[in-house]
């Protein structure tokens, strides 16, 4: 059974059961259960807050820094944990894939969905932090659902890509870890895109124009910018950014889907 869109949709019950099972097993294994989904982003945020604002004393540009950093950490964490899981999921399910005919695309999709649910818990932390920091959470919040959709589409596309290459290439997972670490610092996570603009302007010449544009080729730069517009600046996301994000996220999904479908049944021979 191929992983065509129609076949996956026809098996939506499988998607639901697998996602629920994944969430249930994760919350049963650890004693704190689903509380981890809240503690995890909280701890990450505290670490960067202490290091950047406390030790380096660089937080005032982006005060309140905890909100600023959470806007980046949450979608980034959804991305990295989904990709990590997707890269190994086909290999881990080898015996299952070889004994039951089902659209294997359900496996990476489920990983992304389960982690998206964690992400929603993380958003609660972001809401609470913004509220404590006294930020005016206003009309900009109506953009959040749309941002979430684009995030899901983007992460799904990249995860499908990584899932089939993870089955084909032995050491992809380790390699991916390094790529994502570089990606973290190249994305405006600890800093804002405004700092990139400022520094490029200082450099002058063609770099002043092109360096920020180069940065925006990274869909996470755009996505994180969107989160910050919603929570940090309480303003509307620029239309160009929406356009950019649409092209980037649906482009990623299209590519991931095509590549996955190409390797779909062939991958089984490699497992």
């Amino acid at each position: 059974m191929n992983s065509t869109f129609a076949n996956v949709v026809a098996r939506r019950d499988l998607l639901r059961e697998l996602t629920l099972a994944d969430l249930r097993s994760q919350s049963q294994v650890s004693r704190l259960g689903w509380l981890w989904w809240v503690v995890d982003p909280l701890v990450m945020m505290l670490i960067y807050w202490v290091v950047v604002a406390g030790i380096f004393g660089r937080g005032e540009r982006y005060a309140p820094y905890p909100v600023f950093i959470l806007c980046a950490m949450l979608p980034w964490k959804h991305f990295t944990s989904s990709l990590n899981a997707a890269s190994g999921v086909l290999r881990a399910s080898e015996s299952l894939i070889k004994s039951i005919a089902f659209p294997t695309m359900a496996l990476p999709i489920t990983q992304v969905l389960a982690r998206f649910w964690h992400h929603l818990f993380g958003l609660l932390v972001l809401f609470a932090t913004s509220w404590i920091a006294g930020l005016p959470l206003g009309l900009a919040l109506v953009q959040l659902p749309l941002l979430l959709v684009f995030q899901l589409v983007l992460v799904l596309g990249l995860s499908l890509l990584v899932a089939c290459f993870g089955a084909l290439i032995r050491d992809l997972k380790g390699f991916l870890g390094h790529v994502m670490r570089v990606g973290f610092y190249l994305s405006p996570t600890l800093y804002g895109i405004d700092l990139v603009r400022e520094q490029s302007a200082n450099l002058g010449g063609w770099m002043a124009d092109w360096l920020p544009r180069l940065f925006l080729l990274n869909p996470f730069a755009v996505l994180i910018g969107g989160y910050r517009d919603v929570f940090f600046f309480n303003r509307m996301v620029e239309p160009e950014m929406w356009a950019l994000l649409t092209v980037q996220s649906f482009g990623a999904l299209w590519l991931g889907y095509r590549v996955y479908l190409h390797f779909d049944r062939r991958v089984i021979k490699f497992l």
């Binding site: 098996r11 499988l14 059961e17 099972a21 249930r24 049963q28």
Partner: peptide, 16 residues
């Protein structure tokens, strides 16, 4: 990590 009952749900879904 899941109970037999939960696994029946998952396994049944795999089988369609």
């Amino acid at each position: 990590d899941l109970s037999g009952r939960d696994n029946i749900l998952v396994n049944g879904a795999y089988l369609g």
